[in-house]
């Protein structure tokens, strides 16, 4: 259950009349896994504890302003299990604000990456995201998304990461004959707009299709002798069909990184079936470059909704040697609020 306690607390503390204050929702989850991974120690793990606040309010123009900040606590890090308290790395997943209306929606800041709309077959927990080249979120970004046009929707985003600095060759060499490099703080070699993402989707009668394209190049071409791994072009397609309690989903993507001559092709097939509060998932995926063997994985999971925001699940993942051989059995417990 979402609770609007922030607004209440703030209003109460100030003892002032609430003046069209945004109604904030506090939400989050605590998520644990007991992980049994081949050739590894058993681990009772933090599987993503999150805390977020989001809300929206009506502006004078009649448009809606919205905001969301979502954090993740990475505690239980190496060697801290016997401490009474422990420092946590606080990570920010989402931190964005924007405006929406009949025209659609504009979002600025750290937000969901529309490219990830194609990852429709990602139905697992521990085994999530294994063969996916792009991330689910992005920072330093502005996006425009159309309103729903009879099931169609599209979006355009761009990323301008001014903190990214190119490493450039000074032209000099050191005593060992290695090139001396420096960090370029000018805009001579750093690009203003670093990435563009284009996404489109269609949804009707249980059918869903999404296509996305992302091109990222953080630096201008400056030296053939220096490698820069930040250039990456991806495109992909996701399809899913839901009928009654059955879901079938598939996605395919291809990514080319400047450093590698090879492109990486991923695909993943998944099916799930829900009975009352029990869901079964089954998936098979591959990741392959032109020159190397394919990494493969097979997964099965069963998930039980316990009501009250709680659920439990058990997953099994089998990975071939190319995929890291990390066969695993994982049971999880999660409480959302």
């Amino acid at each position: 259950m979402k609770k609007s306690i922030i607004a209440l607390a703030v209003a109460g503390a100030l003892a002032a009349p609430a003046v069209s204050m945004a109604d904030a929702t506090l939400y989050g989850r605590l998520h644990f896994q007991m992980q049994f991974v081949k050739d590894q120690d058993m681990n009772i793990a933090n599987a993503g504890h999150r805390l977020g606040v989001k809300g929206e309010s009506e502006m004078d123009s009649g448009l809606t302003a919205f905001y969301q900040i979502e954090t993740e606590y990475q505690n239980d890090r190496s060697g801290t299990s016997s401490s009474g308290t422990v420092d946590a790395n606080l990570k920010v997943r989402l931190a964005n604000a924007g405006v929406k209306g009949d025209f659609g929606k504009v979002t600025v800041g750290r937000q969901s990456n529309p490219y990830s709309d194609i990852y429709v077959s990602d139905i697992f927990e521990y085994n999530s995201g294994v063969f996916e080249n792009e991330s689910f979120r992005m920072g330093n970004a502005v996006s425009y998304a159309t309103p729903d046009l009879s099931g169609f929707g599209a979006s355009l985003s761009f990323v301008a990461d001014g903190t990214h600095k190119a490493t450039v060759d000074t032209g000099a060499v050191d005593a060992d004959g290695n090139a001396i490099t420096t960090t370029d703080s000018t805009d001579n070699y750093n690009k203003d707009v670093d990435a563009y993402i284009l996404g489109a989707h269609y949804e009707a009668n249980g059918f869903y299709a999404a296509a996305a394209y992302k091109t990222a190049k953080y630096e201008k071409q400056h030296s053939d002798s220096l490698s820069y791994s930040d250039s990456m072009d991806s495109y992909g397609l996701g399809l899913s069909y839901t009928v009654n309690n059955f879901l079938a989903a598939a996605y395919w993507e291809k990514t080319k990184t400047d450093n590698a001559n090879d492109s990486v092709k991923n695909w993943d097939l998944a099916a799930s079936y829900t009975m009352d509060k029990t869901t079964f998932g089954l998936a098979y995926g591959q990741s392959k470059t032109e020159s190397e063997d394919a990494a493969k994985r097979t997964m099965v999971g069963v998930y039980q909704n316990l009501g009250g925001g709680a659920d439990v699940y058990a997953e099994y993942g089998a990975y071939n040697e190319k995929a890291g051989d990390g066969d695993n059995v994982v049971v999880g417990y999660r409480v959302k609020f």
Binding site: M34, Y273, M275, T278, F280, V302, Q304, V312, A314, V331
Partner: peptide
């Protein structure tokens, strides 16, 4: 099929939790 899947779920959850 439903009963088989539920029996499978019972085996999984009772064997672990």
């Amino acid at each position: 099929i439903d009963a088989a899947l539920q029996s499978f779920s019972r085996l999984v959850f009772n064997s672990t939790f």
